[in-house]
Design a protein around this nucleic acid. Sequence first.
DNA 1: ATATCATATGAACAGATATTCATACGATAG
DNA 2: CTATCGTATGAATATCTGTTCATATGATAT
Lengths: 122, 122
Amino acid sequence: MNMAEKDTEHCEYMYVHEDVVKKVMDEMPQDEVLYDLAELFKVFGDSTRIKILYALFEAELCVCDMAQLLGLTQTAVSHQLRVLKANKLVKFRREGKNIFYSLSDDHVRSILGQGMEHIREL
Amino acid sequence: MNMAEKDTEHCEYMYVHEDVVKKVMDEMPQDEVLYDLAELFKVFGDSTRIKILYALFEAELCVCDMAQLLGLTQTAVSHQLRVLKANKLVKFRREGKNIFYSLSDDHVRSILGQGMEHIREL
DNA sequence: ATATCATATGAACAGATATTCATACGATAG
DNA sequence: CTATCGTATGAATATCTGTTCATATGATAT
């Protein structure tokens, strides 16, 4: 076998391209970071939460506003806000009986914006 | 009741802030777009797929390379590549028996980059 | 204090999803 | 053309996730 070829290491019954694999391994972020990253995107991967985030693009809203606006139950909205809070995507303030939610920073806009660009090109 | 107050419309037993809700409703993207957007992020919301994408950041790889690199079975990788292909996040070319995958465009990098920035600040 | 409003929370259920196993397909070498 | 390698696919299973229902909490007004 020609040693100049990349195929050197065994992978079950297959051969891997060893040098490339090693290079990639060195550059890969830690597993935990990649896991956290997936968890973050999981939050964006639900249309209810996306709707809530988009609604908050425009204005600060209370739970009932969002429920009415999006045609959802108060409970469903509340559960999803919990997820968004846990991931620091929204912040909130109390005003009497109402709790007003808003976007916590501009990363949300950036991330959603990039996603929008991608689907526009599909 | 003071008409200068925002609370005008009924929502079950609650009142919504009508003017704000209407403003937001006008600005909201179509439901279908938001659904597609959620579907896109759902693709990023899995650590196996994130790992595959990050691996492809660095180099073009065949299925077996990825399986070995990431400690996954060939089948698992193949199933996830199917999802990534369906969402136009990766492209591929055949070279003999191997099929080499690579990132299809720079949106992937942008989206992952924004996500990374967010989790760094948590 | 008590009733009511706005929101949160816990349990239960239904639907979605990732992995595995078995197998099929397409390309190549002999 | 047959065997083998690399990859893809379908079915089955276990886990995860979102919604609903019932109920709890926290704030306000009377």
